[in-house]
Design a binder for these strands. Structure first.
Lengths: 246, 246
DNA sequence: GGTACAAGTAACTATCTCGTACATAAATCG
DNA sequence: CGATTTATGTACGAGATAGTTACTTGTACC
């Protein structure tokens, strides 16, 4: 039933958006002096909902997050969440996909062909490190998605595009390094990606229990450079060890 | 009121087992050996609840887990959960603490003093690896606890005892290795522990998203030895690299 | 300026979920 | 053996919570 306002649930807001609204709020003559400043800015409303939802899901888990709470924190209402995203699950998936988009675009823009294999490898490791450092909510969302067996990610249309960037870049570097006789042969690109991710993810995902037990904050800025270098050393020492022998 | 149990005949037969009346048990001589396996066994009931709860929390998250569902999966009832654990939170904390007890006792029983530093280090890494491999629910519970900022762990009376075992063992090995001129100086025991944990935790905690994206199961038994060796190599190559130079 | 429609509001509901009052049966003890 | 303690079961309710609906308000386009 339900006429269902045929809202933009499915995907992006249809081209509509009345792009010419131009400037932000202010400009609008509108005549209404009112502080109402209500405007038709679908994109912005959508983005704001996603921001809050990301934070809320990351902080409370999927089941723990409350739609009412998310709505309350935005400048819009619950009705709009359902208008744009259809359901709590739809909202969660949208937040998750946006998070993955971030790292994907990051990897794609990486160009390390001009660096020698060792430097290139370190560059990839450090770029990953920096991204994780600056996007903690992404890591936390991934943790949550794992708790739910990646069921949502599996049905995402963006899934097929996620693997290539990371693997391609690392695979290329590995290949060059091996040809130069620098890198060991018994690991592939996915193994290296796993290693780098594991190190970076742990700092964020297990920060709290680690700090509670050992009284050391893995994200303390004062220790940041230490860990950054540690990761680079780690990967390189491992890859360049015993080459030709084993 | 209503149906007035009127004897054990009332509801289900299966789990009942109340004394001798329950069909199947009847044969046995009154209250004698065997037969009546589960009458009043507090310890066993408690343990069973904890087992189910651990699995359920690990699988659904704290908020996602349902007390009714946990109760339904045990052979007892929800009333017993509240009888023994007081609340959903109490149950969760009990499960979490029991999980930590496992790894703690493991670390304590480790004796590597008779091994040279390199072998000792590898032994620790592999022991951790094996424990993580065989206790996935523990890792998942820790992930969940991190989502909730380790708030429960922080209030646990067992918290103060969790740090020492891991740090002491690793610290001792590191010290010996340095004296022997084998290990680098710019990392401490906690860093090494972090590295080992990160590697082991990732395989379990991020198994599902990793598999969804890259189509590789990190826990595939066929790859188990590869990762086990990789971890050992990783730690040792890193620790023994550039000693004396850098 | 008028109208179609998007944006926003708020109250509502069906359902779920934690927790508990009440009841009982087995062990323990005097 | 009867009384007390310990353990177990049953039924239900108070409060949340996801999702809906009827309705209002503002905007954009003609």
């Amino acid at each position: 039933m339900s006429e269902q306002p045929s809202g933009p649930v499915g995907g992006r807001v249809g081209g509509r958006v009345s792009g010419q609204v131009g400037g932000q709020v202010g400009g609008q003559v509108g005549g209404q002096v009112g502080a109402v400043e209500r405007q038709r800015d679908a994109e912005r409303t959508r983005a704001e909902i996603l921001d809050i939802a990301t934070a809320e899901f990351a902080d409370q888990g999927y089941a723990g997050a409350r739609v009412d709470e998310i709505a309350a924190r935005t400048r819009t209402t619950k009705r709009m969440i359902y208008y744009y995203f259809g359901s709590k699950e739809g909202l969660y998936v949208a937040a998750l996909e946006r998070a993955y988009q971030g790292i994907r675009s990051l990897e794609q823009q990486l160009d390390v062909d001009h660096l020698d294999p060792a430097r290139a490898m370190r560059a990839v490791a450090e770029l990953t490190f920096d991204h994780h450092e600056s996007h903690p909510a992404f890591i936390r969302l991934v943790s949550i998605e794992n708790i739910h067996h990646a069921d949502h990610l599996r049905t995402s249309p963006m899934l097929p595009g996620l693997a290539a960037p990371a693997v391609d870049v690392l695979g290329g570097i590995l290949e060059r390094g091996r040809r130069a006789g620098l890198f060991r042969e018994d690991v592939d690109a996915l193994d290296v990606h796993m290693l780098i991710s594991a190190f970076c993810v742990f700092r964020t995902a297990n920060r709290h229990t680690f700090q509670a037990i050992f009284e050391r904050d893995l994200l303390d800025p004062a220790r940041r450079d230490h860990y950054r270098r540690m990761l680079g050393d780690l990967v390189l020492e491992y890859l360049t060890a015993h080459v030709g022998r084993a």
